[in-house]
Amino acid sequence: MTTVVEGRAADLLRVTLREHVGAGPHRLVVVGLSRDEHPKATVLVFGPAGSGPRLVLKVAMVPGAVPAVLAEAAALTGVAQVAPDLVRGTVPRVLDYRQESGSAVLVTSVVPGVPMSVDYHRWRHTARPGVVRDDLTSAVGWLEELGRVPVPEATTRRAAQPGSSCDPDGVAARVRARWPDDEVADAVGEAARQLAGSLALPPGAPRTMVHGDFWCGNVLRTGGQVTGVVDWEHAQPGGDALRDVSRFVLAYLLYLDRHTAAGRQVSGHPGLVAGSWGEPVRYAAAGAGWLGQTVQAVVGGHLRRTGRDPRAWRGALAVAAAEAAGTADEPAFARRHLLLAAELIPCC
């Protein structure tokens, strides 16, 4: 562990472990290590040999990671206050969090399940229509359950203010700020602003809790059912669940050709040939094959259930790509999303 978590972060981790599980021998397994400039480590704490994990700790490894750890603690505490049943089921419970000497540690309960990403990368998993449909519908179904969590009216008003991530102008502002004086960024930002405005919730529709980093690596399942959702540092109350729905579908599509050699057809998807980055997204956005029909049904279905035009499903994917361009940590990854959004927008 000392080779991963060092210095003040390691000192705080040792103190926290002693207080929660005693001084005996413990097995610690790092299951997540962010690669951005403000890294965080997610650590499972196991008890005696053969027993399952007892606690989850998220550790800020540098001072710049402290706000993210504290933000996750605040988000989980907020969910627990308004929806304790949901917390006791699929959302981790906050047991402790502390900040000291340029580090922070969040201690939570363990939620059961295996990340959906494990199944996603199994041989031919994404080649089967029923399996892909179940992946998408189970995730969106959980998001719609989260959407029933009550959000205080004052929080909703703050979230809708200009510049927030729920504001249609917010996506455009982040894209333009990242690439000033860039014609592509200007065009994508303006188009995304208009699309986001057209996709806004109808007047009077309730706003919801938004997870903010909802992808298959953060969704845990047992027997095909969602039994846990983790990594809440980007959560925001008073938002629009469409952000999570469209970002989840976009991320799911992006890696469908990951295990296929360039120039070869992706198994189970007639006409989809592995090649340039984002090809499965272009394929689905064109409505091609059973994949395009499934994406249309899932995203369009959510739009319909929330009082919007289901035909705008492509626009939701385009806005998701633009939002990712503005928020992704890695510059090259962000630029790829920007160019993908530029391709998707004319199709909307």
Score class of each variant (00 low, 15 high):
residue 150 P to T: 07
residue 63 P to I: 01
residue 345 I to Q: 01
residue 78 G to S: 06
residue 1 M to V: 14
residue 249 V to S: 06
residue 112 P to C: 05
residue 254 L to F: 10
residue 248 F to Q: 09
residue 144 E to G: 10
residue 198 S to M: 01
residue 307 G to F: 15
residue 221 R to G: 09
residue 135 D to G: 02
residue 334 A to E: 02
residue 114 V to K: 12
residue 107 V to L: 02
residue 119 D to T: 05
residue 2 T to D: 14
residue 95 L to K: 07
residue 133 R to A: 12
residue 310 P to Q: 01
residue 137 T to G: 05
residue 14 R to S: 13
residue 54 R to D: 10
residue 272 L to K: 07
residue 258 R to Y: 14
residue 261 A to T: 14
residue 52 G to L: 09
residue 53 P to L: 07
residue 218 N to I: 10
residue 106 L to N: 07
residue 240 D to F: 09
residue 309 D to Q: 11
residue 52 G to E: 15
residue 32 G to Q: 03
residue 68 A to T: 00
residue 348 C to T: 09
residue 82 V to C: 06
residue 121 H to W: 15
residue 5 V to Q: 05
residue 317 L to F: 02
residue 245 V to M: 03
residue 239 G to C: 07
residue 342 A to E: 05
residue 340 L to C: 09
residue 286 A to R: 12
residue 329 D to H: 15
residue 134 D to I: 03
residue 348 C to E: 08
residue 51 S to M: 13
residue 127 A to W: 06
residue 38 H to N: 13
residue 46 F to K: 11
residue 77 T to R: 10
residue 190 E to Q: 13
residue 36 D to L: 06
residue 234 H to N: 11
residue 275 G to N: 06
residue 296 Q to F: 00
residue 326 G to I: 10
residue 243 R to N: 11
residue 45 V to N: 10
residue 253 L to T: 08
residue 30 V to M: 02
residue 266 V to H: 01
residue 68 A to I: 00
residue 46 F to R: 13
residue 102 G to H: 02
residue 160 A to R: 14
residue 177 A to G: 15
residue 285 A to S: 11
residue 42 T to A: 15
residue 110 V to G: 00
residue 55 L to H: 06
residue 273 V to E: 11
residue 227 T to E: 04
